[in-house]
């Protein structure tokens, strides 16, 4: 998308703030995501009218109403499919999908994986609060096994999706994760999505303080955060802990956590390579895995032709080969005869 950049007058957060009152519960993580998005977009130097936000249904899906860009709050689960049409109709637009864990992975799961498989140049922001917020607190496809909610008073029986693993399985060319409370990181991930040519999948851990409060506190609160989060940086060793005293090492082909000290040195630690699919898959497997820190950052990023780009190439190729289609020749094609 970077190549599409067009110059625009200097923008501020205000340019991206609509006149509609925000209606999320006080304290909802969605506020932080909205704020960081509104702060990040002016830095792209792109004309405001080129941005389109498409969402499905859910608390998170109210997002487009609050962004002063083109926006479409559609129907449950279908934002990804609707966004595909927007992008194909006008590939010059920068198209963003805002979806929830229910919207994008349950009712709309099919569209989500197909969007990624096609590498449609669309940015998916998945607000994962591991709960159905809007419908008042049923478990979602990312809720942990055994979760007690209104619809699962005796604990949920389904095993949750691991969103980055799902995205990798669907052949997404960009897979990342961030947290609502990490403002700077959130901003940088949104920028990375914007800059990536091709489809992006950004999972945002989002606190629903009403129905699933604290779902991600382990990764956001002071006392647990350092030893629980692995901040991914391309080309950097995978180290974590308050003093970066831990690292990830491969023992044969099995990852393990090591402590830097007598036995291990930083040289033993795996170095992150965003283009390595196997590494990305390994990192994805750390998700909610008590033996490992939670991977946050860009897990995977590679370049590949996007569907929308290939469609335009095909149209250009056909036009060159067959000539620009003329209505008259279309009407008069095939065997014709004249009645006097």
């Amino acid at each position: 998308m970077a190549e599409e950049q067009k110059t625009a007058p200097v923008q501020t957060r205000k340019d991206y703030t609509s006149d509609q009152g925000v209606r999320w519960c006080p304290g909802c993580g969605d506020y932080a995501i909205l704020a960081q998005t509104q702060k990040t977009f002016p830095t792209f130097g792109r004309k405001k009218e080129d941005f389109v936000f498409i969402s499905g249904i859910g608390c998170s899906s109210r997002f487009p109403y609050y962004m002063d860009t083109y926006g479409f709050h559609t129907i449950h689960g279908r934002a990804t499919a609707i966004a595909s049409g927007v992008k194909l109709a006008n590939p010059d637009l920068s198209v963003w999908v805002v979806t929830g864990d229910g919207d994008g992975l349950s009712i709309g799961g099919n569209h989500t994986i197909h969007l990624m498989r096609r590498n449609m140049d669309i940015n998916i922001l998945l607000f994962n609060n591991r709960i159905y917020g809007l419908t008042k607190g049923q478990y979602s496809p990312t809720s942990e096994l055994g979760k007690v909610t209104k619809s699962t008073p005796m604990g949920s029986l389904d095993r949750p999706f691991n969103p980055p693993a799902l995205a990798l399985g669907a052949d997404s060319t960009f897979v990342a994760r961030t947290l609502d409370r990490e403002t700077k990181h959130l901003q940088s991930m949104i920028s990375r999505c914007y800059e990536h040519k091709g489809g992006t999948f950004l999972e945002i851990y989002q606190n629903c303080n009403i129905f699933n409060d604290g779902a991600f506190f382990k990764y956001t609160e002071k006392d647990t955060k350092a030893q629980s989060v692995l901040w991914l940086e391309n080309g950097q060793p995978m180290m974590f802990g308050a003093e970066k005293e831990f690292g990830i090492r491969l023992n044969g082909n099995v990852p393990e956590v090591i402590e830097i000290g007598d036995k291990w040195t930083p040289d033993d630690v795996l170095v992150h390579d965003e283009t390595d699919f196997v590494l990305a898959s390994m990192l994805a497997s750390f998700t909610s895995n008590d033996d490992f820190p939670e991977p946050i950052g860009v897990l995977y990023s590679v370049d590949a032709p996007s569907y929308d780009e290939m469609l335009i190439d095909q149209i250009d190729g056909a036009t060159e080969k067959m000539g620009k289609g003329e209505l008259d020749s279309l009407l008069n094609a095939g065997d014709t005869w004249v009645v006097e």
């Binding site: 389109v52 498409i54 479409f72 559609t74 129907i75 279908r78 499919a81 609707i82 966004a83 595909s84 049409g85 927007v86 992008k87 194909l88 109709a89 006008n90 637009l93 099919n110 569209h111 197909h114």
Partner: peptide, 15 residues
């Protein structure tokens, strides 16, 4: 569903 959804998106974008 994606068939009509994509068409609605394209309509929004002016096709």
């Amino acid at each position: 569903i994606a068939g009509i959804a994509s068409a609605i998106g394209a309509a929004f974008a002016g096709n």
